[in-house]
């Protein structure tokens, strides 16, 4: 009986999902926080096809069944992702929790999702009939809401490696372990021949979805370091305007100020 809901192949899982609305269960650590009794889970841990980590020249691909523990242990995991994952929860959670689950669950506080936003990752969705790649920014429709159809499964996350080198990750929590982020931050900046070649800031736990604003970052991209320094105040003011923190246990004003401080520190450190 149980085998029906613990498929051992992706095709079998997708076939189940084509016929019945099931809740995909990867690590379960977000799902089980709620009293889950009666939820129709389809357990994914037995599907070998979802357990792969692929390190390509330009991208790092994480299968939906890969746990944080496995990501931490893998030699090719990008340092930014490793640093963020090492600070997620505690060993017992990291032993089963997955990056894909963190993304698909669509909590605004997922530190794994934050990294994927900053890196402009793509989410791979499969159904029995279809396959598509969705940019992470288009994957979310709001807090807890994604474009995943009931018959689809997130099968992998594709993280472009191009801009990950010059990263900064910061997590502001109440304690070191088992801390749900009050604010989490990723800054990516690449400078080539004294020109800002790439810039991406992303803030987690602030809005319903990770705050990432490519249009604001574009204000500095293409500028020389000197010109970017001159435009920095205008850039930070645009972020000030853009960030609208949702109300939470920790005050919105505080979290907004932390975001702006992190942004200012990152920009001034990098531009000198």
């Amino acid at each position: 009986m149980v085998d029906r809901y613990a498929p051992t192949s992706l095709a079998a899982a997708l076939d189940l999902m084509a016929h019945e609305e099931l809740v995909p269960y990867a690590g379960g650590t977000d799902l089980m926080v709620d009293e889950a009794l009666g939820r129709p889970f389809v357990f994914l841990h037995g599907i070998e096809e979802l357990k792969g980590i692929t390190d390509n020249e330009d991208s790092f691909i994480v299968g939906a069944g890969v746990t944080y523990r496995e990501l931490l242990a893998h030699p090719a995991t990008p340092e930014l992702l490793k640093e963020a994952v090492a600070q997620i929860a505690a060993p017992a959670i990291r032993n089963t929790a997955t990056l894909a689950g963190n993304i698909a669950n669509a909590s605004p506080k997922g530190d794994g999702a934050l990294v994927c936003f900053a890196a402009d990752a793509e989410i791979v969705l499969r159904s029995a009939e279809t396959a598509r790649r969705v940019p992470i920014a288009s994957f979310y429709e709001g807090r807890g809401k994604t474009v995943r159809r009931p018959d689809e499964l997130v099968t992998a996350v594709i993280i472009p490696k191009k801009h990950l080198a010059g990263y900064r990750f910061e997590k502001v929590g109440a304690r070191k372990a088992l801390a749900i982020s009050r604010v989490s931050f990723v800054g990516l900046m690449t400078i080539e021949e004294s020109v800002v070649a790439h810039l991406a800031l992303a803030f987690g736990a602030v809005e319903d979805v990770v705050a990432r604003r490519p249009a604001i970052d574009a204000m500095l991209i293409g500028k020389t370091i000197e010109a970017a320094r001159g435009a920095a105040e205008e850039y930070l003011a645009a972020w000030d305007e853009a960030i609208q923190p949702i109300r939470g246990r920790v005050s919105a004003e505080y979290r907004k100020q932390v975001c702006l401080n992190l942004a200012r520190d990152f920009i001034t450190c990098r531009l000198g």
Binding site: T29, A92, I93
Partner: peptide, 20 residues
């Protein structure tokens, strides 16, 4: 905390159907 196949997990975070 328990060990699931030798790995530390929180048993409140594991669904019964997962342990077959």
């Amino acid at each position: 905390s328990i060990l699931l196949d030798g790995v530390l997990v929180n048993s409140c975070m594991v669904a019964a159907g997962r342990v077959g």
